[in-house]
């Protein structure tokens, strides 16, 4: 487990491990198709890092991955930290530099 990331200018959420974290990590890959997405499992927490300085997460994509309705504000329940700046919307959250 290395402390330094192989992606450049990474941004994204750091999540408590579990079903929602897995769905969000998968959604990050779907919603950021042109970027390298690295998911690093630290046991109790998961780092989702998207390179290039922008990570978009869409509610609809998370719902699809999760197989149930999801409110964007629910992300906060498992988001212990994040890298980059944040822009919070009802249907989309964006992390950026």
């Amino acid at each position: 487990m290395s402390a330094t990331s192989s992606v450049s200018r990474p941004v994204g959420p750091i999540l408590q491990s579990g079903d929602v974290a897995e769905a969000v990590a998968d959604a990050a890959k779907v919603d950021n198709p042109d970027s390298n997405v690295e998911v690093r499992d630290h046991g109790a927490y998961v780092r989702v890092e998207v390179d290039g300085g922008e990570c978009v997460l869409r509610r609809a994509t998370i719902e699809e991955e999760l197989g149930r309705p999801f409110k964007m504000s629910e992300l906060e329940i498992i988001m212990s930290s994040f890298t980059g700046r944040i822009d919070t919307g009802n249907d989309e959250i964006r992390f950026y530099r």
Binding site: Q16, G43, A44, Y45, I78, S80
Partner: peptide
């Protein structure tokens, strides 16, 4: 430390401190 807590079997503390950090 929540990772160390989970590794040590203390899921209560692991969950608690990550919940606080959200």
């Amino acid at each position: 430390l929540s990772g160390d807590a989970a590794n040590s079997g203390d899921y209560t503390f692991s969950k608690l401190i990550q919940s606080i950090q959200t």
